[in-house]
Simulated scan of single mutants.
Amino acid sequence: MPIEQQTTHLDDSLRVLALEVADDLAELATVRAWAERLLQDLPEDQRVDALMVVDELTSNALRHGKPPRQVRLLRKRDWLSVEVDDACVDPACPRPPSSDGGHGLKLVAAMSASWGQWQRPTGKTVWAELDLTRAASPGHPR
């Protein structure tokens, strides 16, 4: 079972919440529930987008990365960053969609203002930023 780390208040406007994720795809349900609880104050369309980003980045880390893994939500009033660490040094790369996958990073790109990754000698962090100032729009992709 994942271990939730304590909230770190870096200043009055930024909250960092972290969750250690075990090496098991069944952890996705736990990560989803954790993120849903922490993001329950967002309007539904923004919460759905944010949860999809959390789910896709975590799923990729579990399927293609190596332990240890950690999911972080960095949040200010009008901004959310989702970061997922894993110990695989191979970069996260979009692949052509097929019946067995390849849609995740395209969904992340569609739901977020920007995404990318930081490589480290011991692994990588894949991140996505969401703009929480945008109003709900009927044409917003889901």
Results as ranks from 00 to 15, higher is better:
residue 20 E to Q: 11
residue 19 L to I: 00
residue 55 D to C: 13
residue 93 C to S: 15
residue 126 V to S: 09
residue 22 A to L: 10
residue 2 P to A: 07
residue 136 A to L: 05
residue 129 E to L: 01
residue 37 R to L: 09
residue 99 S to G: 12
residue 138 P to N: 10
residue 91 P to E: 01
residue 129 E to G: 01
residue 98 S to E: 12
residue 31 V to N: 00
residue 56 E to D: 11
residue 19 L to T: 06
residue 65 G to R: 01
residue 135 A to R: 15
residue 23 D to E: 10
residue 120 R to D: 14
residue 28 L to E: 04
residue 132 L to K: 04
residue 110 A to G: 10
residue 28 L to G: 04
residue 44 E to M: 13
residue 116 G to M: 06
residue 121 P to S: 08
residue 97 P to N: 07
residue 11 D to L: 00
residue 38 L to S: 10
residue 45 D to H: 11
residue 58 T to L: 02
residue 37 R to T: 13
residue 10 L to Q: 10
residue 11 D to Y: 02
residue 59 S to F: 14
residue 13 S to V: 14
residue 102 G to Y: 05
residue 54 V to P: 01
residue 33 A to E: 13
residue 60 N to H: 10
residue 6 Q to L: 13
residue 119 Q to G: 15
residue 123 G to W: 04
residue 66 K to S: 15
residue 96 P to L: 14
residue 47 R to I: 08
residue 79 W to S: 00
residue 45 D to M: 01
residue 135 A to P: 06
residue 107 L to F: 11
residue 53 V to F: 05
residue 36 E to W: 03
residue 112 S to C: 00
residue 71 V to S: 01
residue 22 A to M: 10
residue 65 G to W: 03
residue 87 A to W: 03
residue 14 L to I: 12
residue 66 K to H: 15
residue 115 W to V: 04
residue 18 A to Y: 06
residue 16 V to T: 03
residue 139 G to T: 14
residue 142 R to W: 05
residue 75 R to M: 11
residue 29 A to I: 07
residue 39 L to C: 00
residue 48 V to C: 13
residue 104 G to N: 02
residue 18 A to Q: 12
residue 32 R to L: 13
residue 107 L to M: 12
residue 11 D to T: 09
residue 62 L to T: 02
residue 116 G to Q: 09
residue 98 S to I: 04
residue 127 W to E: 02
residue 114 S to E: 15
residue 28 L to Y: 00
residue 116 G to A: 08
residue 79 W to G: 02
residue 4 E to W: 00
residue 57 L to Y: 08
residue 40 Q to N: 11
residue 85 D to Y: 15
residue 64 H to Q: 05
residue 98 S to F: 04
residue 123 G to P: 06
residue 90 D to E: 14
residue 140 H to N: 12
residue 29 A to F: 06
residue 8 T to N: 09
residue 44 E to L: 15
residue 15 R to Y: 04
residue 31 V to Q: 02
residue 30 T to K: 00
residue 115 W to D: 02
residue 125 T to A: 11
residue 36 E to N: 11
residue 115 W to E: 00
residue 17 L to F: 05
residue 64 H to D: 03
residue 18 A to F: 02
residue 57 L to Q: 02
residue 93 C to H: 13
residue 15 R to F: 06
